[in-house]
Write a protein that binds this DNA or RNA. Sequence first.
DNA 1: GTCTATAGTGCGATAGAC
DNA 2: GTCTATCGCACTATAGAC
Lengths: 173, 173
Amino acid sequence: MVNAALKLFSRHGVGGTSLQMIADEIGVTKGAVYHQYPTKDQIVLAAAEAELANVEQVVRNAEAWPPGRKAQGVLVEGIVDLAIARRREMGTILTDPVIADHFEGDAVFADVMHRLRRLMTGDESGPEARVRTATLIAAISGAVVHPFVAGLDDEVLRVELLRLARRFLGLPN
Amino acid sequence: MVNAALKLFSRHGVGGTSLQMIADEIGVTKGAVYHQYPTKDQIVLAAAEAELANVEQVVRNAEAWPPGRKAQGVLVEGIVDLAIARRREMGTILTDPVIADHFEGDAVFADVMHRLRRLMTGDESGPEARVRTATLIAAISGAVVHPFVAGLDDEVLRVELLRLARRFLGLPN
DNA sequence: GTCTATAGTGCGATAGAC
DNA sequence: GTCTATCGCACTATAGAC
């Protein structure tokens, strides 16, 4: 259900997705949808959190390594893989205005972003570190939905993106 | 009117913006809006094209220079300035699903993107060139709306983004 | 847990007065 | 060119049978 919602959100936007569309997508009626989630807002929230959980898992994997280049490499590889596996969905939670509103002031979102920045820039937290982190995330999650790469094979895209991201971070090859 | 629509689109998404909201924003009634545009689709199209025209102007400025590093520098500076001046609006035309649908197969959009890629990668047009171009555009237009940089001063953000973009392209300082 | 039925609201769009 | 008034429809949400 949450997955069906995310798929529709990323294809029509949150505002352009109705409960009827979600119900149709999973093959039930609106009433059944309302049984699980009392409001549309709750569905949006659940979908956004589910997608954020994927990012959190990638961050957690990278945190298993001691701080440094290896951890950064694991992080970048995880983000690239995630962005490719979910080309539209990942960008949606970062760019859709309705979901951005939901995450503004959200503690879990802030925590994941903070840990992500820490992995990439260590203890720096000034403007340079912030812009660098925001840029890398935006680059990867945004690039995968750009028309230029719409027709590219997943594996080709993966290799190119990884190369660019590693160079961006100053990591070996 | 087109500007009011773009502002609302970037704040609530295209699907989440009603004609009533647009009418209220510019201080008229729905009837007056319908006098200028026969359908909501036409408004969306006009708004998207207006924003695309800004990008086209930046590309045109860069094309005034002979192909090479100078042209690339002008291009990157123009894109960064545009993204900062219109932090939300520029990202909207690249990420909102409704607008992306409008641009899919659009000749003007394809032309601007083609010229942009040509400026950045010359005559190469393989996967590597495509991913590189898509990544740079996504990075800049996406980074400016990321929560990490929400509180940053425009000028600070501009300097950092320019530095990152230049390094990404292998341009001097 | 899924259904039908329906309330209440706001939507896109149209018609016609001024 | 802007207004009011209104149509038909789809929406979110609720109530209650099975």
